[in-house]
């Protein structure tokens, strides 16, 4: 229901965005919003300090006139995401530790085993592998089946891809082509082999290899809310795009479908993408500015995106973007 509301709201906001004039004067200090120029300056700062980020120009037909042609939005690609958010939330066992004096216990969330490893982490590994195994047997990822994509759709007439094959073209002998097997596929083959031989006996050598999902993160400028906006596109281990449901597994469960919504990207063609809704960004930013100023410090507008990324991390806690920059609160 929430997503329907979001869709309706999103469409209305598109109209509103069209009518909203471009912010000209800096209101960063008073309200926590950004002008396009400030967004570009903060973006330049981010690109300079975090080399994985870069500017992108997006689709030519969707160029926004209030931003430079080659600096339409920011992008970082192939950010690893090692585990699912659900696992982080449900796997941990909490132990209430009673203090001897009796005034208020505390909660220990990580119990160390004798050998120093945490039980929790091992469980996470097991879960991830099981899930991978399941994913690998879905017909979609089974590369040996041609046209596997349309098998599940009964209303489609089956398409015989063999009919397209050309016979004469292989007659040209070319000794310079290497026969290659991708490492990922080689692993898959060996894993299937161990599954068959060992009858499910765990401990095959390839099992220690953890396959990870990756994410592309985009930061666009939202003209209506006058703040940056984070977009995420996920890919599975085979670089196939994730479905919406799969993507929600990586979003903090408190935020899925509420703060994180599916909307159309302002600079890209194609289906709706997941984004962190920007309606609260300016408020949070304003609070941070106030906190810093109460401590006697001053927050430069060029740090905006670095701080922004720190607070959107709470929404998507599993994506590990490399973050070394710190800023002083006082």
């Amino acid at each position: 229901m929430q997503s329907v509301l979001n869709t309706v709201k999103g469409t209305a906001l598109n109209v509103a965005e069209y009518l909203t004039p471009v912010l000209k004067e800096s209101k960063f200090r008073e309200t926590g919003v950004l002008t396009p120029e400030e967004y570009v300056a903060a973006g330049d700062h981010l690109v300079h300090h975090c080399p994985t980020w870069q500017w992108a120009s997006g689709d030519d037909t969707k160029t926004k006139p209030y931003l430079p042609k080659d600096k339409q939005f920011l992008i970082t690609r192939n950010v690893p995401c090692y585990r699912r958010c659900k696992q982080m939330e449900y796997v941990g066992e909490e132990t209430l530790v009673e203090e001897e004096s009796g005034d208020g216990g505390w909660v220990e969330t990580h119990q160390l085993n004798d050998d120093g490893t945490t039980e929790v982490e091992e469980k996470i590994c097991e879960l991830t592998l099981d899930e991978n195994r399941d994913e690998m047997h879905t017909p979609d990822s089974n590369k040996s089946a041609p046209g596997a994509e349309d098998e599940e759709e009964d209303d489609d007439e089956a398409i015989d891809m063999d009919a397209f094959e050309e016979s004469g073209m292989l007659e040209l002998v070319d000794p310079s082509v290497a026969t290659t097997t991708r490492k990922a596929e080689a692993d898959l083959i060996s894993r299937q082999a161990t599954d068959e031989d060992g009858g499910g006996a765990a401990g095959g050598s390839s099992d220690s290899v953890l396959r990870t999902r990756t994410y592309d993160l985009h930061i666009t400028y939202d003209k209506y809310y006058q703040t940056p906006r984070l977009w995420v596109v996920g890919y599975d281990e085979q670089r196939k795009p994730l479905t919406v449901e799969q993507m929600y597994e990586d979003v903090s469960q408190d935020h899925a479908k509420k703060t994180v919504t599916m909307e159309s990207h302002p600079h890209l063609p194609g289906p709706n993408m997941a984004s962190v809704h920007p309606c609260r960004h300016a408020d949070i930013m304003k609070k941070i500015i106030q906190t810093v100023e109460e401590g006697g410090g001053e927050l430069g507008v060029h740090l905006y995106l670095i701080i922004f990324l720190k607070f959107v991390q709470t929404v998507i806690p599993t994506i590990e973007y490399d973050f070394t920059q710190n800023f002083n609160m006082s």
Binding site: I159, M161, E165, S167, T243
Partner: peptide, 15 residues
């Protein structure tokens, strides 16, 4: 193609 034969590929973007 994915079967290592000389032929085109097909993708369904229905979803």
């Amino acid at each position: 193609n994915r079967n290592c034969k000389m032929g085109p590929r097909m993708v369904s973007m229905r979803d």
